[in-house]
Simulated scan of single mutants.
Amino acid sequence: MAMNKADGCLSAPGTSSLDAAVALFHSLSDSTRLAIVRRLADGEARVVDLIGELGLAQSTVSAHVACLRDCGLVIGRPEGRQMFYSLTRPELMDLLASAETLLAATGNTVALCPNYGTRARRVATIDNEESPR
């Protein structure tokens, strides 16, 4: 890790702290990954536990857990033939609590955002379904 002289933050060589923040928020931008993080805030879980609680396919859950693990937000603890996943940093829950406070303070107006809000996601989904493959 190298010290970024502009802001005093640690960052990987060749990346800025802004790049790292973008990657962090991008890793949390998927509803499935966010649901997994919220579930793991309650304690460790196996993929099979997450499948049952989230009602998603094993491949979907495994892919999202792998993404969170690759981002350093989740760690696996092997026990026999099973892997128990947990959050690597409790500060992640502080971040999510701050986000919930911000959403409450703004009346969830971010949901109206033309680029990332709920309507924009619906339009993008419809466009993808209607486009020829």
Rank of each mutant, 00 (worst) to 15 (best):
R33T: 03
R122F: 11
S31V: 08
A104S: 13
A63G: 08
A124T: 11
T101Q: 10
D42V: 04
G43E: 04
C113F: 02
I51R: 13
D94N: 06
E129D: 14
I75G: 01
D30Y: 03
S31Y: 07
A63E: 14
N108F: 12
P78H: 01
T15M: 09
R133C: 02
V22I: 15
E130H: 09
A23D: 15
R81G: 00
S62R: 15
M83N: 02
R133S: 06
V37R: 07
M93C: 09
T125I: 07
L92W: 09
L92Q: 08
G117F: 11
L56Q: 09
A12N: 11
T101R: 08
G55I: 07
M1C: 06
C67K: 13
G72Y: 13
A105F: 10
H26Q: 09
S62C: 04
G43M: 05
T125N: 10
S27C: 04
T15F: 11
L40D: 13
L92A: 03
G80P: 01
S11E: 09
D42S: 13
G43C: 07
T101E: 14
T88A: 15
C71T: 05
G72N: 12
P114D: 03
A57P: 00
V37Q: 12
L73K: 04
A21R: 12
I126Q: 12
P13D: 14
S98N: 07
A105M: 10
C71Q: 15
R89L: 07
A21Y: 07
R122E: 10
N108G: 04
R121G: 03
A23G: 13
T101Y: 02
R89H: 13
E53C: 03
C67F: 08
